[in-house]
Nucleic acid binder design. Structure first.
Lengths: 294, 294
DNA sequence: ATATTTTTGAAACAGATGTTGCATAGACTC
DNA sequence: GAGTCTATGCAACATCTGTTTCAAAAATAT
């Protein structure tokens, strides 16, 4: 573990001196440490989007004889981690849901809640919702108050893929205006959890009157949305805190995006490349990481 | 873990039927499980005092196509173990490759990524960030583009607790204005993942110039935010899809909210009750579930 | 603009990997 | 004890590994 820590620190320390490709490789290794020990260098390079040679070069750059030495260190770390793990996990579990236990407990709960989406029924629901959304002319995305984050994220990702979604939100209450042109053949994706905002239910009613389809991400089989939606995905919102969690709901929305992109992979790739060019031309992103300007 | 357990059990179950050499190989694998994933088959065979071919034969004997499948299972187990509590969820990875595979895989990955936040180092970072935020006068929340959802959600939850946060966003580019009154004693919470928006980095620079503290939720140890932040929480963003995932980042933000609320439980409860009364009086939420209006 | 250095990608390399076919050694049946 | 069958060791195999080399490209200096 010591050596491993040393290596990781060395990578971080000398990161700024590296060439772009070396940084790309180093970054991937830092973020996916366990993989280093478990897969081949070539595969790692593939995943990192880098030439195999770059990994060797990274090793030399770090004053190591070769890549095998990188792997050796990560293997060693994994070995000792595997040994000591059970003990540490048990020790941690004991000290209850207070202090650092709270963070631990929340993370654990969230992980489990998301894992629960793997129930066959949930997967089936996700597929059906994705089907409906894929078949839709336009997708009108509605998520008010706490659900705004989920709605917006879904919309944002989908805009990278095309022009299919309309986000029903906007300054000065103009959000609703987006629905003017909606009609049969279009679908509303509505996200709402308890307590359910009245406006959400009203807008769903409006959608129905217009003959639109409705699919929902919500928190219960008996949510008011379940009654009025064609398809529903249920996700957990319980939390040890005073608040409801939206993390599982966000996970659902990301899975939906993934499924939709997967329906037409080439189109998705094309759209993303185009979006990329667009953002490049607008100079939105920092292409290279500024070197300690501050 | 299921598969791994399954394999281990299968080895034990059929141990008696094996030929002496197969038993020798099997025994070594049972006793040195972690090694399987970390070294080559030939080396393993050497250590076990067995011919390389015997390992292949053991695999076939266990109705597996080849030795690689043995290693794959042990690798998976080790990966899960390293991820800690994701073990249960991730172990099923192997058996659902058809049809609903993508959704299943995505959910699995998300669950594991969040579970990885339970690493002691991550928990410690979360605590430190929570400390910094708790001590801050005001918290200025910044998340542009894809990170907007996380920033907004953090801000929204925090508004239920009081007036401590300012969300640096708004129509017509007015978001930045919020920072006018910020200064030393205040802290900026910035969320940004690769690719990093230029404006984000600029605003962080501005915050530093004003003498503010900076804490970040980002995707890498070597993110441009790491250099310029007092504390950083790292979360995974990889995904099987074309997009980066923000679910772990949202989880982080929710945990932070939880930790902050936990610092002063009574105040949190009071603030929430007040928020509740306020929303009640505005008649925002549906108090009873409308019964099939449609 | 030119020259020089650095960085990158592609191909070639030797060596190691997991697998397979075959021959021999041993165990068992009759 | 001959014949059959399985278990084992060995060597050849295609493939993949990590490394190196070399030329083109990009960045930097002149």
């Amino acid at each position: 573990m010591l050596q491993y820590e040393g290596l990781k620190e060395r990578i971080v320390a000398r990161f700024d001196e590296m060439s772009p490709q070396l940084q790309k490789a180093a970054r991937y290794i830092l973020e996916n440490g366990q993989e280093v020990a478990l897969i081949s260098m070539r595969e790692l390079a593939r995943n990192a989007g880098v030439q195999p040679a770059t990994m060797t070069r990274l090793a030399k750059f770090l004053d190591l004889p070769g890549y095998d030495d990188i792997r050796a260190q990560y293997s060693q770390a994994l070995r000792s981690q595997a040994d000591g793990f059970a003990a540490r996990a048990q020790a941690r579990d004991v000290d209850g849901p207070s202090g650092s236990g709270l963070a631990h407990g929340m993370v654990q709960t969230l992980s489990a809640q998301i894992a629960r989406l793997n129930a066959p029924e949930s997967i089936a629901r996700l597929e059906r919702v994705a089907d409906t959304l894929a078949a839709a002319g336009r997708i009108y995305v509605l998520g008010l108050r706490s659900c705004h984050s989920v709605a917006w994220h879904f919309h944002y990702v989908m805009t990278l893929l095309g022009e299919k979604t309309v986000h029903l939100d906007g300054p000065a209450g103009t959000g609703v205006d987006g629905m003017r042109r909606a009609g049969p053949g279009d679908v509303m994706l509505v996200i709402s959890i308890s307590p359910y905002a009245k406006q959400t239910l009203e807008l769903v009613g409006l959608a129905r009157e217009k003959g639109m389809g409705v699919v929902a991400i919500t928190d219960s089989e008996v949510s008011p949305l379940s009654n009025v939606s064609d398809e529903v995905v249920i996700c957990a919102t319980d939390s040890a805190t005073f608040f409801h969690t939206l993390t599982p709901a966000l996970a659902v929305s990301e899975v939906l995006c993934g499924l939709l992109a997967d329906r037409d992979r080439e189109a998705a790739v094309r759209a993303l490349q185009e979006a990329d060019r667009h953002l490049q031309s607008l100079d939105i992103y920092a292409n290279e990481i500024p070197k300690r300007r501050f």
